[in-house]
């Protein structure tokens, strides 16, 4: 929905842009410091120039740097809290425990029940915290891009969940039992399987992991483009435009502020959705009856 709405705005923006300006592919720094006309946000934002090892599989760019920074702070913060954890918690520890408690009680145990949840809680908690941190980099000044907005990380996370639910399912029911339970759900007239089995196959083996990864990445990409659009427009209105158009900058700045808050909400929501669905898939794999 959001992306569709964005599309119109983008077309309008692109139409406004001179060829000269859009050929500038220096990305973030380009639109931040450049003053040669309006820079429309584009998908090339997500493919910045390499900082090291350009052209190899080890290519390291700004987004990877953002991810490393996010991971570093994530581990640092939680390590500091864990290292000095006490039975009577301080303020920081109380916040961390609230997060852990939220994931455990509100998401995993809610879906799986207390007993079954136990073995998955550590991984799913880590997943939740990681997604929140990587999403949040999208609204943190100077980082300004979500670590999850480049599809690779969401794919790795989704694959991890995918392998996990397949393996616990097969371990519990055996390969044949798992396939039978998932592809030929009982209690259905035989001819229906012609329709149902391909759908179930797509569901279990392709759609679940694919939608997990795509939903997260698409949300973060759209959020980033929205923010860039708002702030680029503000930059343009204030410093490039003349006359009454300058006043429009106030509106775009307010919109940017609003969307920043909205992106924080989306960052938390998407982490919640990702972990919730992961719990559901894991639970389905362990269910006796499909």
């Amino acid at each position: 929905m959001r992306i569709l709405a964005l599309e119109g705005a983008l077309h309008a923006a692109v139409a406004q842009t001179s060829d000269d300006a859009s050929s500038d592919s220096s990305g973030f720094f380009g639109w931040l410091f450049g003053s040669d006309g309006f820079h429309a946000p584009s998908i090339s934002e997500f493919y910045p120039d390499a900082l090291a090892f350009a052209g190899t599989i080890f290519e390291f760019n700004r987004i990877e740097l953002v991810r490393v920074i996010a991971a570093f702070f994530m581990i640092l913060i939680f390590w500091l809290v864990a290292r000095s954890a006490k039975i009577v918690p301080g303020r920081g520890q109380a916040v961390v425990e609230m997060v852990l408690d939220f994931v455990r009680v509100q998401i995993v145990e809610e879906v799986m029940g207390k007993e079954r949840a136990k073995r998955f809680v550590p991984f799913l908690t880590t997943l939740f915290i990681a997604i929140v941190f990587f999403n949040m980099t999208g609204v943190i000044p100077f980082l300004n891009i979500a670590g999850t907005s480049l599809i690779g990380l969401p794919i790795i996370m989704a694959l991890w969940v995918y392998v996990m639910y397949l393996s616990v399912g097969i371990k519990k029911h055996g390969l044949g039992g798992y396939l039978k339970a998932n592809l030929f759900p009982p209690g259905v007239p035989k001819p229906i399987y012609l329709l149902l089995t391909p759908i179930e196959f797509l569901q279990v083996f392709i759609l679940r992991p694919a939608t997990l990864a795509l939903r997260l990445a698409a949300n973060m990409i759209a959020g980033h483009l929205l923010l860039v659009l708002c702030f680029a427009a503000t930059q343009y209105f204030f410093f490039e435009a003349t006359g009454a158009l300058k006043a429009a900058g106030v509106v775009s700045l307010a919109a940017g502020f609003g969307f920043t808050l909205f992106e924080i909400f989306v960052a938390l929501l998407q982490a919640y959705v990702f972990v919730m669905l992961s719990s559901v898939y894991l639970n389905m794999a362990l269910e006796e009856e499909h």
Binding site: S44, F46, T56, I57, E59, L153, I221
Partner: peptide, 21 residues
């Protein structure tokens, strides 16, 4: 809409992206 330069597909991961992720 990316009329100039390389075109990117945001749902196909680059190898380096997968590696670092």
């Amino acid at each position: 809409a990316e009329s100039e330069g390389t075109t990117y597909n945001p749902i196909i991961p680059a190898p380096y992206d997968l590696l670092w992720s």
